[in-house]
Nucleic acid binder design. Structure first.
Lengths: 202, 202
DNA sequence: TGTACATCAGTGAACGCGCGTTCACTGATGTAC
DNA sequence: TGTACATCAGTGAACGCGCGTTCACTGATGTAC
């Protein structure tokens, strides 16, 4: 038995309610944006009163933080799984896999993606853990290009950064709806952009 | 005398109040985000009561629409001015000028930029005029590459699109603060990215 | 130049609504003997 | 197995706050004769 399943029924119930609250919270973020995230509304949807939620989350911002951190974590695990399929070889193919994994995730979870990489939530500052996860997500890209951060002016980091910005350039405009009605295939553009920066590496 | 200056004092006062309201509105968008845009708060800042603002704007969303459209218009004029300096020659140099103009504008007006290209304001749908302006902004880029929209699968639009997405990839991550603390120079990355797609065109 | 009238900016009260958060409390559930 | 106790989820009332929008109204400004 893992520690989770070994926990008492009270603790298990706790985790279940927490999960339900977060699920509703995501729906809210999707429908009305992160700044409209409301504990009272979530409580109502769950058939509870608002003060009850304070047993599970210290505050509204605390809940938002958990959403952000869990989205980062989800993406980090996704990227790592794509980059290192079974402890396999390092560079090259991993980058294409990362690119595909990130775009698929972003299109399936546009609001998760926008919460992480879109307009910052005003008045909210991300916890250090979020920054650490952002770095962790980028690490496999650096590794894929066989480099590390060396310092300003280091030209070897330019390509991993370009990989990252080309990826986000296509994805963010697509997810924000700026391609709707335009006569071209975003997927083709994305593939071509990724190939242009990974290119002769493999 | 232009028609504007020929208008009566009442109309001139009207335009001045409208401009003041919009100015405060931009400050609000910057400080608390577009979804926190509040007529009551603006009225208070201006030393007026909220109902007075309904003489100038039909509703809150109407004001937001004017902000968005005016930002698009500002950017459109900027891009056109960069692309066609004095009715000069067509391609090549114009693209670098566009890229520089857009980035400068975005860094000087991060909230205007994010309002146009960041996370869509939930529950708000842009008017047709905004879409028209977005197309108008992109037109000089197409012209710079000597192409037009021909239809899906037309490979000739891939480069202008790549120009656009590489531009936004760097700018949007930079403006959203995702580069802070990272040991590299975004300007260098941007220049390199633009060169990579304009490249041998000139 | 003077008067009567129309226009319109702005007020103040009110509507119904939603928010985060606190507090004292009830009542069910789990735990220790 | 049974009882006493501790734990803790959830309630209901209340706090002070802000929102968009409407309405009837006052009073200043501009306009026409």
């Amino acid at each position: 038995m893992s520690p989770e399943t070994a926990a008492g029924p009270r603790e298990r119930y706790r985790q279940q309610v927490r999960a339900e609250v977060q699920e509703r919270a995501w729906t809210q973020v999707a429908e009305a944006g992160a700044s409209a995230l409301s504990l009272k509304a979530i409580a109502k949807q769950l058939g509870m009163t608002a003060p009850a939620l304070y047993r599970y989350f210290a505050s509204r911002d605390d809940l938002l933080t958990e959403l952000i951190v869990s989205a980062y974590r989800e993406l980090a695990e996704l990227v790592e799984a794509a980059a290192y399929p079974a402890g396999a070889g390092p560079a090259g193919a991993g980058l294409h896999a990362i690119a595909r994994a990130v775009r698929t995730w972003a299109l399936e979870n546009p609001h998760r993606y926008l919460l992480l990489y879109g307009t910052p939530v005003p008045g909210y500052s991300a916890p250090p853990e979020a920054t650490e996860l952002a770095i962790r997500i980028f690490a496999p890209v650096l590794a894929g290009f066989g480099t590390t951060f060396a310092g300003p002016g280091d030209a070897s980091t330019l390509r991993p950064l370009a990989f990252w910005t080309r990826m986000h350039g296509v994805i963010s405009l697509e997810v924000a709806g700026h391609f709707t009605g335009m006569p071209f295939d975003p997927d083709q553009l994305y593939t071509s952009e990724i190939a242009s920066v990974v290119g002769d590496l493999q």
